[in-house]
Write a protein that binds this DNA or RNA. Sequence first.
RNA 1: GCGGGUGUAGCUCAGUGGUAGAGCAACAGCCUUCCAAGCUGAAGAUGAGGGUUCGAUUCCCUUCACCCGCUCCA
Length: 535
Amino acid sequence: MQMEKLVSLCKRRGFLFQSSEIYGGLNGFWDYGPLGVELKRNLKAAWWRDMVNGHDDTRPVYGSPTSYEMTGLDCTIIMHPQVWKCSGHYDLFHDYMVDCRESKRRYRHDQVRGRWVEAKGQRIFVTTMVEAEQEEAEVQARALKFFHLRAKNAEELKWDSGFQSLTEVEDLERVLGPDARALGTLTPPREFNLMFKTYVGALSGEEGTAFLRPETAQGIFVNFKNVVDSSRVRVPFGIAQIGKSFRNEITPRNFTFRSREFEQMEIEFFCHPNSSQDWYRYWRDRRMQWYQEMGLAGERLRLREHDPEELSHYSTGTADIEYAFPFLPPGEFGELEGIAHRGDFDLRSHMEGKLDETTQPLQVELGPEGKPKWKGSGRDLTYRDDLTGERYIPHVIEPSAGADRAVLAFLCEAYTEDEAPDEKGVLQKRVVMRLHPRLAPLKAAVFPLVKKDGMPEIAQEIYRTLKPHWPVFYDEKGAVGRRYRRQDEAGTPYCITVDSQTLKDRTVTIRDRDTLEQTRIPIADCLEEIRQRLQ
RNA sequence: GCGGGUGUAGCUCAGUGGUAGAGCAACAGCCUUCCAAGCUGAAGAUGAGGGUUCGAUUCCCUUCACCCGCUCCA
């Protein structure tokens, strides 16, 4: 499938538009049109129903280790700035970057290290990005090369500092970039704000600086105690949230895949440390199964367990659910959802202060004065099991899904070109969106076969019966075959047609989008028939 | 952020330093008794800004967006 065809269809039929298109568009922002909004709402509703609302709290489901409870939350997009300092996003998303004009590479300013060296009357700062064990040899080799010296003349190099970070160097004209041959090819450090900054209060100033959330998860962690205290849930339980998040992607690309404003569907599942591995595996498999049930059944969907070296230090397991999007090179997959075992990292960070994720066991990251770099809330976020009396910090399993990415995957998977016979029985190309009926924006269309003989009136009667229950489309214009094809493109699973036989016995045909089969049913059964087929 | 490419009607594409064409779609109507192609009619476009020019959709500059590659990717 060519991505261009899908993008074209999405625009033509009203699934997706570029944001602010009449002003030339805005990079990394997309709008959902009339069909798209229904599709996305259906997806989120299906997720909420299957994970939260419809969940049976009283017994194990889908092979869960035990029964568990599920509840929901909807918190603000702008939160206290300290939330992002303790979560680690502030440090992680506030990088200063330098670009090399020569090598076209980009480096994190604080990760470039080097030494001052003098030779032949010139003093320069030689940098490298190699591992610490090799940096001494690497820097020497690069310095020799720069000064056109042989290795045996290494003593001509006068080192006048140990290794230091590029952040301590002011004169970039005297810096030899990590991959450069010439001096002074690095640009001044530029701040990369991966979080959107905003100001709380009418007077903007640094003290009012806040951020649009880069993920919904933190709102759940900071409300953990509120939910426990107010809802009678007990561990194990999950808190779900759907909402917009914002990230200043460096390279938004590939349609909606990497958008700067996007929607997440996240669960933070709290469990006892002893059972967390079982719960991790449960959620990993359960979430995979969900996508399959919703129609991503083929080999384009895969579950990929992270390698140990890929894992955060505090995580004992992370898996991605990935889809082979058509815009990716063959064999490559894009992430739809990550299921991460996060241990007690988040709750502890909001309690004690931001933890240093490179420590084991985890310790609070300290600032220059030996105090916590980012101070936590100081609130007690431990959980007390009032049956056993045990008090502990729950471990967290985080299934975090991208709603827009899921929509995109379902659109890609649904797009099909097949052949259907025309009125002469000749096969004609047909574009059909094979969306799962639960996701389809329109559940049914109702047509009079021809616009006369009282057929429109009967068709409208059926339409009015169905419309209070689902989005249903009425169409009486043009040839019926054309109307079927239009619905195929929109992904409408069922078409009901009033014909001459309807006038005699009050029956209609119902046509299946995928098989093209038509069944004749009484008008009175339409509502129930559609209802059953949608399940 | 870098390099290359592309921006003309809702879509797919023509074309020209001098009034911008077509097919399909959509719309109004006709005709139509089950899978887009019949007839009639009307409507609709040079991404934005600036420059050169008597005149720019065309040439130049800037900008925005999209595509490809690199870079980045919590």
